[in-house]
Simulated scan of single mutants.
Amino acid sequence: MAYPNETGKEAEEQALEWLKGRGYEWVASNFRYRHAEIDLIMKHKGILVFVEVKFRSGTGYGYAEEFVDYRKRQLIIRAADHYIHQTDWHHDIRFDIVGVYRDQKGNVGFKHFQDAFY
């Protein structure tokens, strides 16, 4: 059995490859600012996309998007604001959630919520 940190890291890597396969360009991973972390920063069609990746081994306890609560969203927004100022970004941004789901047979699926919050 994988530990939560290992499982989360694996899910981030899978989400990264999945997004790249859909035309997203990787910018950064695990960007930290104070108590916040942004899992993935990507570019897509001229938009800077901040991605929160959530892993679920089933939906019995809820869907991935339900685990990005108000506090988590505020931390991500604060870190994104810092990143935008640090890199002098002057174009559009977006906040996405990618749910990575593994069923009992080990099959992995993805659910992408574009513009999930702000």
Rank of each mutant, 00 (worst) to 15 (best):
M1H: 11
M1R: 10
Y3N: 15
Y3E: 12
P4T: 03
P4F: 04
N5Q: 14
N5P: 05
G8Q: 08
A11E: 02
E12M: 08
E12V: 13
E13M: 11
E13K: 14
A15P: 09
L16E: 11
L16I: 05
E17W: 04
E17L: 12
L19G: 13
G21I: 01
G21Q: 03
R22E: 09
V27R: 00
V27G: 01
N30K: 02
N30H: 04
F31V: 13
F31E: 14
H35Q: 13
A36T: 07
E37G: 15
E37T: 07
I38N: 07
L40Y: 06
I41Y: 02
K43E: 15
H44K: 10
H44P: 02
K45I: 12
G46F: 02
G46N: 07
G46C: 07
I47N: 03
V49D: 04
V51W: 09
E52S: 10
V53N: 03
V53Y: 02
V53G: 04
K54Q: 08
K54E: 08
F55Y: 15
R56W: 07
G58W: 02
G58F: 05
T59W: 11
T59H: 10
G62P: 06
Y63R: 15
Y63Q: 10
E66K: 13
E66S: 13
E66D: 15
F67G: 12
V68A: 10
D69M: 01
Y70G: 10
Y70N: 15
R71T: 13
K72F: 08
K72Q: 15
K72S: 09
R73S: 05
R73F: 01
I76M: 00
I76V: 11
I76A: 00
I76D: 00
I77G: 02
I77R: 08
A80T: 04
H82V: 08
H82T: 07
Y83G: 06
Y83A: 04
Y83Q: 07
I84Y: 06
H85D: 15
Q86F: 15
T87Q: 03
D88W: 00
H91N: 12
I93A: 01
R94N: 10
R94S: 13
R94W: 04
R94Q: 09
D96L: 14
D96S: 09
D96F: 12
V100E: 00
V100S: 01
Y101T: 00
R102L: 02
R102G: 00
R102S: 07
Q104V: 06
Q104I: 04
G106N: 05
N107V: 07
F110D: 05
K111A: 10
H112C: 03
Q114R: 11
F117H: 06
Y118W: 12
Y118L: 14
